[in-house]
Simulated scan of single mutants.
Amino acid sequence: MKGNKIIGFIAGAFIVVVALYMCGDWHIQSNDEAEKKETYQAVDSLPMLIMQIQKCSKLYTAEYKVHKIVTHDDALRLKGSLLQRQFNLKVPMADRKIAIPMDAKLKAWIDFSQFSEKNVEREDDKITIILPDPKVTMTSSKIDQKNMKQYVAMTRSNFSDEELANYQQQGRAAIIESIPEMGILETAQANAAKVLVPMLVEMGYEEENITVAFRKHYGPKDIQTLIRIDD
């Protein structure tokens, strides 16, 4: 009888050990499945992220209003030679001067319609969004006719419409040339981040692990290629 109790105890202990082993094995499999599921969800979130960003389409990220005064001094000069000597003399009372105030509007925007996996870099829990190349558009420019000032000597003719149009073109060109110094691309990047970061936080990323950047630093020559003129 005592031997039977010992055998029964050993058998019971064996069953418990087998049961614990099986439960432990089942538990390990569950963790593996959870990890696989978590990995799948992380990978699967990429198409959703791309789709959400593509919805931004043409995102205007910065707007600048620029005021510039174009000046021109048109003095009449007498040039020639006398006794084998060259001379270049300003003709008295024959000046023309003009100051043309100009207002222009610049907008920076980013086209997300072609945004894809190539614009996303992920490492562990960190994510970097590489913004598409920005564009800078001069949407309008006009002369402030009311505040335009000019002086024309009695011996000279007034500025023609063709001359005024030419000076306006010079003013527009000067504004475009000064765009790299305005910091408009830096503003565009910061404002794009304000749109994208909350979207990524909503999808589970920590704000400190999110980076929004352009693919490179744009120099003055690069910026000139990004400029469009609408008006």
Rank of each mutant, 00 (worst) to 15 (best):
P47A: 02
W26Q: 14
T39E: 12
D95I: 02
Y60K: 14
L59Q: 04
L78Y: 13
I69H: 07
L49C: 05
K79Y: 07
E38I: 10
D25Y: 11
R85M: 12
Q86P: 04
L46D: 04
A104C: 02
N31K: 14
A99S: 15
K55T: 10
I100M: 15
P92A: 04
F87N: 05
S57G: 12
D44K: 15
H72M: 09
K58H: 09
I28V: 09
R122G: 00
K97T: 09
A75M: 08
E35D: 12
E123L: 13
H72G: 04
M93Q: 13
D32Q: 11
V70Q: 13
P92Y: 03
L78F: 10
A62C: 06
S57Q: 14
K36T: 09
F112Y: 04
K36L: 12
H72Y: 14
D32H: 09
K118G: 06
K118E: 11
H27A: 11
D32R: 13
H67Y: 15
G24V: 06
M102V: 12
W109D: 08
K37V: 07
P101E: 04
Y60H: 11
I28R: 11
K37W: 09
D32Y: 12
N31A: 08
L82H: 09
E63H: 06
L89K: 11
N88A: 01
H27P: 00
F115S: 03
H67E: 10
D125N: 14
P92M: 04
I100T: 07
Q52T: 14
V120R: 02
R122A: 06
I100R: 05
D32S: 07
L76A: 14
T71W: 00
L82K: 12
K105T: 15
L82E: 13
